[in-house]
Design a protein around this nucleic acid. Structure first.
Ligand SMILES: [Mn+2]
Ligand SMILES: [Mn+2]
Ligand SMILES: [Mn+2]
Ligand SMILES: [Mn+2]
Lengths: 220, 220
DNA sequence: ATTTATTTTTCGATTAGGCTAAAAAAGTTA
DNA sequence: TAACTTTTTTAGCCTAATCGAAAAATAAAT
């Protein structure tokens, strides 16, 4: 089995995410933006990841993740999300506090640790942001999801995930009372600015701007 | 507050342990042996730790840990031992499986994580090997301990810790039925080879070689 | 007091990961 | 097609952490 350094794992995970699970090829600039490193550093890393054959690297034309790369990326994602569940469920972290810590914890190398953690958490299928947790073989049970913006008036659904996991966005959702699992109904959509009015759990009405609604994922 | 890299934290922790909490000065070779790195690498690291003023470094004459260094080392030790408790108590690791994983986990940088972990574990005072867990200010409630070899015939006590945390040693203790917390009584001591015969929990009699008895710590 | 042995440091390399500045390739516009 | 813009790569440099070989300092033995 190929061994990756923590930095290599992080880059590969970023490539996996940006490529939407390997569906699209990814540019140096996109990776640079996501990783907050300079394009020059990315080029260097791409050469190394290419040598390890976890990506296919054609200079100047972006990269594609290989099957081997996908597997490894999914293992890192699995660890990241399991740790996020642990932090929220067991250590009372709020969902906007977990990401940075999980970004460190995901690189701990111990098969047993992750197996046992998974078991200890009761084999969770989704992380605190509603993202699916790959199993130990990298299989993901993904659900069809739409953004809140895509729903029509009077459509109902359940809030199942968020596209943006930034602390600012998550705290905003907390403030307005939106949470993973909430039953929602679209009461109104404003054509003009793309904002929506939704009813949460048949109780509370909340307004969301286009930006917010576009980052909230629902299952119908 | 001074920021140390993971490697610097590990070296400082080693220096703290070898110096017995700062009581003795420590040689390059000793550190090299403990860290399993070459003396050349140690010299280089000592220069860096000296610059950060966590040790006092006089070339050719070994190092002494500073007060600041002690504080930082104790924080790393605290994290290491809390993670060990977590692995054993929550994830069903055995006491011989925790050390390597804890050596990685101890470098995760999050104040909140350690506070919450401590709370979640019920503020444990000792790790799975009987070693005391420093509090968040670095205070250690240490107990007077003797090795089993130092007890006289008919002396009684409680097995409270082990000097050697190697997997081989711990598995040997498991096999013979010795464990932290066991009540013991010395039944016989053999002058010739330094071995001892002890009664565990008034039930089981076990024989221990000098080497083993010298690594088992008891409170009388 | 020399000589010998041991310990420690220095020197020169290497690998991983980052940076800036400059060069080169690709893409776009005229 | 040529010129300009954007993207990407290369080149050179830096820090951290490691190593082996050689030099230097200290310690031990004659
Ligand atoms: Mn995350
Ligand atoms: Mn997440
Ligand atoms: Mn340990
Ligand atoms: Mn321990």
């Amino acid at each position: 089995m190929i061994q990756l350094t923590p930095a290599e794992e992080s880059y590969l995970k970023a490539i996996y995410h940006i490529s939407d699970g390997g569906k699209r090829s990814v540019s140096t600039n996109d990776i640079s933006f996501q990783m907050k490193t300079k394009p020059a550093s990315v080029s260097d890393m791409l050469r190394r990841l290419g040598e390890k054959e976890v990506i296919e690297y054609r200079k100047y034309y972006g990269v594609n993740i290989t099957e081997e790369g996908k597997k490894l990326a999914l293992q890192t994602i699995r660890k990241h999300r399991l740790w996020e569940v642990f932090l929220v469920e067991k250590l009372r972290f709020s969902w906007d506090e977990v990401h940075e810590v999980a970004d460190e914890l995901e690189h701990i190398k111990s098969k047993l640790l992750i197996q046992r953690l998974d078991e200890y958490l009761g084999f969770p299928k989704f992380d605190p942001h509603g993202d699916p947790i790959p199993d130990e073989y990298g299989d993901v049970r993904s659900r069809p999801r739409l953004t809140l913006s895509e729903l029509d008036i009077n459509a109902t659904g359940q809030l199942v995930a968020v596209k943006d996991s930034s602390a600012a966005f998550l705290r905003y959702l907390d403030k307005v009372g939106a949470y993973i699992g909430a039953r929602i109904k679209v009461l109104d959509k404003v054509e003009f600015d793309g904002s929506v009015e939704i009813l949460v759990d048949n109780k509370k009405t909340i307004f969301m701007s286009k930006d917010v609604a576009g980052n909230v994922l629902v299952m119908v």
